[in-house]
Nucleic acid binder design. Sequence first.
DNA 1: GCCAACGTTGGC
DNA 2: GCCAACGTTGGC
Length: 140
Amino acid sequence: MAFWLIKSEPDAFSWDEQVANGVEPWTGVRNHQAKKNLAAMKNGDRAFFYHSNVQRAIVGVVEVVREAYPDPTAETGQWVCVDVKAVGPMPQPVTLAEIKQSAELEDLALVRQSRLSVCPVSADHWDILCRMGGWKEPVR
DNA sequence: GCCAACGTTGGC
DNA sequence: GCCAACGTTGGC
C-alpha cells in the first residue's frame, strides 16, 4: 500500500464536504506530475487530506476506492481522477508550520515542492505525521 | 497584498 | 529549440 497527500483549498472543496459526501471524485488536477501520482494510486491506498491556502494543515485521512479514470471535468480526456472516501478526521490537525519544524520531514514533497497538489508520502513520513496528528489506527 | 516557484505560451 | 513574458499556485 502506498501513501499520498492531496491538497484542496477549503474555499473550493473542504474536508467537511468530503465527509458529507463520503465518496468523492478527485477531479480538476491539471499538472503532469500530479497526474502521474494519481495514475499510480491503487485501491486501498491512503492519503492525507490537506487544506491549502487559508488553513495549511492536514485535516483528515481518505482512502482510494477507485483507481485512475478519465477526469469527466476535462473535455479533452487527457487528465485523470480517482475516487476517494473519507476515513476519518485528524484528531489534531498537523499544520504546515509544525511539519517545517521537523527535521525528519524536511524532504517531504509537500515542503520541497509546494505547488504540487498530489504528492507521494513515504511510509516513514506517514507514520511520523500520524503520530503528530494523534491518528490512533495503525495502518501498516 | 506580495513574492517565489514553476508551468505555459508565443516570438524568433 | 531557446528564452522572455506572462499566468497560476500557494506560503507568508
